[in-house]
Amino acid sequence: MSNIRTDLALEAREMYQQNANQESEVPGVEVENAGSKDISVTRVKVTSSEGVEAMGKPMGSYITLEVPRLREKDQDLQEDVCKTLAKEIYNLIKIDKKSNVLVVGLGNWNVTPDALGPKVVSSLMVTRHLLEYIPEQIDEGVRPVCAIAPGVLGLTGIETGEIIRGIVDRVKPDLVIAIDALASRRLDRVSTTIQIADTGINPGSGVGNKRMGLTLQTLGVPVIAIGVPTVVDAATMANDTIDLVIDSMIKQVEQGSAFYETLKNMNRNDKYALIQEVLSPYIGNLMVTPKEVDTVIEDVSKIIANGINIALHEGIELDDVNRYVH
């Protein structure tokens, strides 16, 4: 696999095909495309060890919603994304209608690009306590849901995975849903893409931090991960920019320059390594995020929260959510 940083299975698949110079499917990987022009849905399923090696991702299902106009604050579109997200989450949930669900909002609420998880938790229908103390006032079909935003190691001094494992041991949920900010290798996917996976998640992996994973193996219960890329690695961005500039120059020059052709024919990993070597002394391991990231996080967190709300609670519509969210 390439060392270009991405958390998206869709991009891992694209990079494998690019590095192999082929358009045929990755071995051990099944792909299904659905959705519409406004909301593209790509379902990638890693089915074998060969696929794991090729993709650098654990075996399981990865569903990606690409919504190019997500930043435009179109309310109708946002509602459509909520419903599409809810449908995809519902299809991954394999638990009883009365089963208890723990939602974990990963990230640092003091850093806007990393505040997606805590923001989602703040807009979530938390119902476990209501069903315990005032069940007669709760609508039929509402599931017991509890939530936690545990912060990050730098704030608490405790590994996030250890906190969650302690809560799981005590609360004994039947399912954990973890939400986290991700990293992409393409600027156009930042804040316009939502990934759902049934393989769990490694907190902090998007920015190069290796932490204890939240998975079936570490927690003892199934874990569904939902993430949105909010940052892109600076070297990756520079790499893509150079590719665009080279393509433009070659089109403008009839024969093309030998220099440009040499750059174009360089292996993508070699270009990335060269750019990283040049940038590192000056900017270190820099991650880039859009300037309007605060409003983007606000909008996307509500979309994800409502998608989870609709998926978990049978018969609940968007108009019903406000009665349970404080």
Rank of each mutant, 00 (worst) to 15 (best):
D299P: 02
M249P: 05
Q17S: 00
V207C: 07
E159T: 09
I89L: 15
R185T: 05
E88Y: 09
G161Y: 13
T199Q: 02
T241C: 08
D169L: 03
D80C: 05
S61L: 11
V52N: 07
K264S: 06
G141N: 12
K98R: 08
L85Y: 06
I93T: 15
A147V: 14
V253T: 13
Y324S: 00
I158N: 08
G256W: 03
E50I: 09
T112A: 10
T160F: 04
G284N: 00
T127Q: 01
V46K: 15
S191W: 08
A20H: 08
M237L: 09
D38W: 07
A235F: 00
I158S: 09
T127N: 01
Y90D: 13
R186V: 04
L155M: 15
L312T: 08
M59R: 15
V228S: 10
R165Q: 12
G256H: 06
L182I: 12
Q217H: 15
S191E: 06
V142N: 10
L182K: 09
S122H: 03
M59W: 10
L274Y: 00
T192C: 03
C82F: 12
R185C: 02
K291D: 12
P203T: 07
P203M: 05
T42M: 10
A9C: 12
V101T: 13
V52I: 13
L77C: 03
G200V: 11
I158F: 13
S123V: 03
D198A: 08
M249E: 13
S49N: 10
P113W: 10
S280D: 03
I303Q: 09
W109Q: 07
P144N: 07
L312W: 06
D320L: 00
S99H: 09
S99W: 05
H129N: 08
A147Y: 14
S48W: 05
T192H: 00
P113S: 11
T215W: 06
T199S: 03
N202K: 12
M125I: 04
D243I: 01
S36P: 07
A235R: 00
T6G: 01
V103P: 12
L216V: 14
K57M: 07
I308Y: 07
Q137T: 14
L153V: 05
V253P: 02
V81T: 12
I134Y: 13
R165F: 05
E72C: 02
L124S: 05
Y90M: 14
A235C: 00
I179F: 06
G315Q: 05
N309L: 01
I242L: 15
L131F: 07
V325S: 02
L279E: 05
D80M: 14
Y16L: 01
D247C: 12
I148K: 11
A305Y: 10
I297G: 04
G206L: 06
G284Y: 00
A197S: 15
D320T: 01
V81A: 14
T127H: 01
S2C: 03
M125A: 04
E162A: 11
P229N: 07
G307C: 06
T160E: 06
R323E: 13
